[in-house]
Design a protein around this nucleic acid. Structure first.
Lengths: 196, 196
DNA sequence: CGTCTATTTGAATGTACTCAAAAGCGGTGG
DNA sequence: CCACCGCTTTTGAGTACATTCAAATAGACG
């Protein structure tokens, strides 16, 4: 049953009564996403926060020149949305696509606001979630500033092994901020024997 | 009176009764910090979250080779700490120093936990604060991945004009992830007339 | 005034990119 | 079932962005 996973995720930080549990579940909408389908599109509205039950999603920024920058991958048990646009109800900055056929549970902004007022302990849950997201993002900034591409690559493999084995090298390169060509060189380690 | 500033900051997101206000204020500790003094030191405990009343602070990571990476600057009306270590009660990863003589209001982890249980709407306040911090950090990641150093520099000047005019170029360079020498070149724009 | 650190400048180098072409791989239709 | 198409990955040559190291200059502060 797919609801077990999200309830277990919630219970890491707060405890719900049976009534609260069923109320919370009533706010969720199941959505099946086909491979390559976008659930958030740049410039369009982003009304939901998504909990991944199965599959894998990717959030990425697309600049004017067509270059993609991958912001995050989300596998089973992760939450994903374009947070800026979800919170501020602005057009989306990011795109979010399914890399495989996926199943997500969607919570709309309106339902979330209702949830905060009816079950205030969800403020705590999302406070902790945002805290963790902030800390993760800050650690990524430190890595981006202080480490060369090769070390960032190995760190990525260690931190996100589940994502790493299911995405293409081009996508990993765009997460690391390098070109696919250069990631290919890193992998074969040819740069160490450059001019022998 | 320095408490007005923090109360105004809090009131952006939640409303407090008089009793809650005075209880909240009773948990704060004023601390004056001399220029160049560290309030958080790598490997030591980080017990407080700090609200800047006056002055300017800088959080930075120092790697094994001695290279500094500036994580954030905090001016008046900003909050700053080593969030990972504050939340998880681990030894600090970062250093936080005053760049000028500064006055901060400190809230300890124990007091914050007490505050969450006695005045639960502070969960909401910090949820929103963490949300904003996460979004800011994510935008920075996008810039780091997609923009060259020169554009990141101009974006920094636009976003943080108050910090930019009060810190050294070396510190700005370490925020951008480049060397001070290269920032110097960017500023004079000599790279545009490189080989005339 | 002297000392210490920040900033500028330059030369040589390294890291990562662009563009182009070839090889590999996966899916689809005949 | 295999041939072909499109996309990813690899490889290489040439180039650009950014670094290192060193030295000169400029600023800040006691």
């Amino acid at each position: 049953m797919e609801n077990n996973l999200i309830l277990k995720n919630i219970s890491k930080h707060i405890s719900l009564s049976d009534a609260e549990t069923s109320y919370f579940l009533s706010l969720l909408k199941e959505k099946k996403i086909q491979k390559k389908e976008l659930i958030v599109k740049h410039q369009q509205t982003c009304k939901h926060i998504n909990f991944v039950v199965t599959g894998i999603l990717r959030a990425f920024y697309l600049d004017a020149s067509g270059k993609e920058s991958t912001i995050m991958f989300a596998v089973s048990d992760w939450w994903i949305t374009d947070m800026y646009c979800f919170i501020n109800e602005k057009p989306a900055m990011l795109n979010i696509e399914a890399l495989e056929e996926s199943l997500v549970l969607q919570l709309s902004k309106d339902h979330l606001d209702e949830l905060y007022s009816k079950v205030p302990k969800f403020e705590r849950f999302f406070r902790i979630m945002m805290q963790n997201a902030y800390i993760r993002e800050q650690l990524r900034t430190i890595e981006n500033l202080s480490l060369p591409a090769e070390e960032r690559y190995y760190n990525f493999l260690n931190k996100y092994p589940l994502a790493a084995e299911r995405v293409t090298q081009k996508q990993i390169a765009s997460y690391l901020g390098i070109t696919p060509e250069f990631l290919s060189i890193i992998k074969t380690n040819r740069q160490k024997t450059n001019y022998s």
